[in-house]
Design a binder for these strands. Structure first.
Length: 461
RNA sequence: GGCGUCGUACCCAAGCGGUCUAAGGGAACGGUUUGCAAAACCGUCUUUCGUCGGUUCGAAUCCGACCGACGCCUCCA
């Protein structure tokens, strides 16, 4: 079975066929950098990482662009509250964002364009829309998109405009607009914006939120590209508006495949600051959870399904990862030439599972089935050095998708290595008190010594 | 009101009409193994899939009703 993905555009599973051979163009909505990203944001980023890693596993080359929103209402508000410059604030949280991404072992995108570095591209897109009469300037100088001119509006998110008209939130928010649903492409400068403004043909101001993704995605990936990802909440209005802007400007299809991931909930409830169940990655790390177990938990639930973050779930994730890592350590004990070993394992079954719209649960089941069988053999007849190498090679291939098995090796000092040797001698001589003494010494350092038929393994606790 | 999602054994979770007396992970309990551990392996928790009906030779899977949880409808990953 070829790779099939659920395309929000058609609300159907579709066979994935990139426009340009094995080159895939992919755009993901990134963070607004006015505070630390929360763990729910990272569910989304881990999902796009899984998708990208899997495409690469299948042999695709992925050109992945993720924007950094470094100008918007919340940023301006934060700057004014803290009396900081926009540059200063957004630099701090952009840095924090990249640090968190790295900690979750999320592979960097090919490019992370900042909105403020692409004001020109946005302005030129707006100009095109004005020329084609899809946009107009209101009395206050802002530029709005003219929804009435675009009958397909609402197609992606299945929102119908009649329904829109009835929501209170909109009607309470009247502007000098042609229609109350028209959205801003360019926001005219207001006093509270301070010095956060750029010159344009239409006067000083700043870009609307949606225009940055339209301008930057097309700038880096072309007017039509393969995959657009984002959290399910962005479907409307953000992605709907992106589509409107691009399609009206170019007359072409914008993104071919739209992939939206579900949200994360905490103990089954929506995460919110008032419910006191709001966590950043840092919060969880400070509570003693590892970034690996967090990544595994975020990864192990299908992306179209809400993932429930619980502390019990995190512990379960940690155990599951440890199971695979333990197997890897055992294999390493007897492997020889991993570099040259062909991978040997149920790679086809794994691919089959993942090709079904990234059915990670089924994929993991394949891996754990394989792991149990291998452990059984290790317990019974044992593996040859060559077989162990082949198994390791398989594990490494799988981990190129999962990104949770590879672990930093414990660094043992010369003295520690000597002690381990001494213990092995003591054990041979049945000197159990000395042997246990050494094991206790390591335990106090947070290292567990496990005795296997192939020798002693040091594991960090 | 509109659009959409979901309810599977102690917990998480796959399943998309027969191979389901339900994959996989976690927890617990027993056993094997081990100098003791740790890890691993074996077994139990599993005739059951929110409830009630219907369709079918056959349903966790399709249809209907009901109950329950939830998301979006211009702040939002």
């Amino acid at each position: 079975m070829p790779l099939r993905l659920y395309n929000t555009s058609s609300r159907n599973l579709e066979e994935f066929e990139p426009s340009n051979g094995n080159k895939v163009t992919m755009y993901s909505c990134g963070p607004t950098v006015y505070t630390y990203a929360h763990i729910g944001n990272f569910r989304t980023f881990v999902f796009m990482d899984l998708l990208k890693r899997y495409l690469k596993f299948l042999g695709y080359e992925v050109n992945h662009v993720m924007n950094i929103t470094d100008v918007d209402d919340k940023i301006i508000q934060r700057c004014s509250e803290e009396d900081r410059s926009r540059e200063d604030l957004t630099r701090e949280f952009t840095d924090a964002f990249f640090k968190d991404m790295e900690s979750l072992n999320i592979e960097p995108a090919s490019k992370y364009p900042k909105a403020t570095d692409h004001i020109e591209e946005m302005q030129s897109l707006i100009a095109q829309l004005i020329t084609k009469d899809y946009a107009y300037q209101s009395k206050d100088g802002s530029i709005y998109f003219r929804l009435d001119k675009y009958p397909d509006y609402g197609r992606l998110s299945k929102i119908d405009r009649e329904g829109l008209a009835q929501t209170e939130r909109v009607s309470n928010d009247e502007y000098d607009k042609g229609s109350i649903h028209d959205f801003a492409l360019w926001k005219a400068w207001k006093e509270e914006d301070g010095d956060i403004a750029w010159d344009s043909h239409w006067g000083r101001g700043r870009p609307g939120w949606h225009i940055e993704c339209s301008a930057m995605s097309m700038h880096y990936l072309g007017e039509t590209f393969d995959i657009h990802t984002g959290g399910i909440d962005l479907m409307f209005p953000h992605h709907e508006n992106e589509v409107a802007q691009c399609v009206c400007a170019t007359g072409l299809t914008f993104a071919k495949y739209w992939l939206h991931n579900e949200h994360l909930v905490i103990d089954g409830a929506k995460m919110s600051k008032s419910a006191e169940n709001f966590y950043t990655l840092r919060d969880l790390l400070n509570k003693g959870h590892s970034s690996t177990e967090i990544r595994y938990l975020l990864l192990s639930t299908h992306y179209k399904q809400k993932v429930n973050l619980t502390f019990e779930g995190l512990r379960a994730a940690a155990s599951a990862v440890e199971r695979l890592r333990e197997l890897k350590r055992k294999l390493e004990k007897s492997a020889v030439d991993v570099e040259n070993a062909a991978d040997q394992g149920p790679i086809g079954d794994f691919r089959e599972a993942m090709n079904d719209n990234l059915n990670i649960s089924a994929g993991l089941a394949v891996i754990f089935d394989w792991a149990r069988e291998l452990n059984r053999r290790l317990d019974n007849e044992g593996l040859s050095a060559f077989e162990a190498s082949e198994a390791l090679s398989f594990l490494s291939k799988i981990d190129s998708v999962l990104g949770v098995i590879e672990d930093e090796e414990i660094e043992l000092s010369k003295e520690d290595l000597e002690l381990i040797k001494e213990r092995e001698t003591a054990r041979r001589e049945q000197n159990w008190s000395r042997s246990d003494e050494i094991r206790d010494y390591f335990k106090k350092k947070g290292i567990l010594l496990e005795d296997t038929p192939d020798g002693t393994i040091a594991v960090s606790i």
